[in-house]
Simulated assay, not measured.
Amino acid sequence: MAELNGYEPVGASLDIYRRSREPGVQRLAQELPPVGATVDLVIGEVRTWHRKPWIWVDLTAPSHDPSDRP
């Protein structure tokens, strides 16, 4: 689960299992930050949700290697 500063009514998370092939997510999974840490993530997908908050933001981790980007 994640908190989006300034967008508190919106739910958000980074699904490490579903996005495990993305280079930035692989790196983040190997260097798991401590609970409560602030990390920079990017929006992977915005979708409707079946309960409040009705909108869910699927996050992903940016790659630091420009050759990994599409």
Rank of each mutant, 00 (worst) to 15 (best):
M1A: 14
M1Y: 08
E3K: 13
E3V: 15
E3N: 10
N5M: 12
N5E: 14
G6Q: 08
G6W: 09
G6F: 05
E8S: 15
E8W: 00
P9D: 14
P9K: 10
G11W: 06
S13T: 09
L14F: 00
L14Y: 03
L14T: 00
D15M: 06
R18M: 01
R18Q: 13
R18E: 14
R18Y: 03
R19L: 15
R21G: 14
P23N: 04
P23L: 04
G24D: 09
V25T: 14
V25M: 05
Q26S: 07
Q26F: 02
R27G: 01
R27H: 12
L28E: 08
A29G: 05
A29I: 02
A29V: 04
A29K: 13
Q30Y: 01
Q30M: 12
E31P: 00
E31N: 15
P34M: 08
V35C: 06
G36P: 05
G36S: 04
G36L: 10
A37H: 14
A37C: 13
T38A: 09
V39A: 03
V39K: 00
L41I: 06
V42T: 08
G44D: 12
V46A: 12
V46T: 13
V46L: 13
V46C: 12
V46S: 09
R47W: 04
R47Y: 03
R47S: 13
R47I: 06
T48S: 09
T48R: 09
W49E: 10
W49R: 13
H50N: 13
R51D: 07
R51H: 00
R51W: 02
R51L: 04
K52P: 04
K52D: 15
K52Y: 12
P53Y: 08
P53E: 07
P53D: 10
I55D: 04
W56N: 10
W56H: 14
V57D: 03
L59G: 03
T60R: 14
A61C: 09
S63W: 08
S63N: 09
P66L: 11
P66V: 07
P66D: 06
S67D: 13
D68R: 11
D68A: 11
R69M: 06
R69S: 07
P70G: 08
P70S: 10
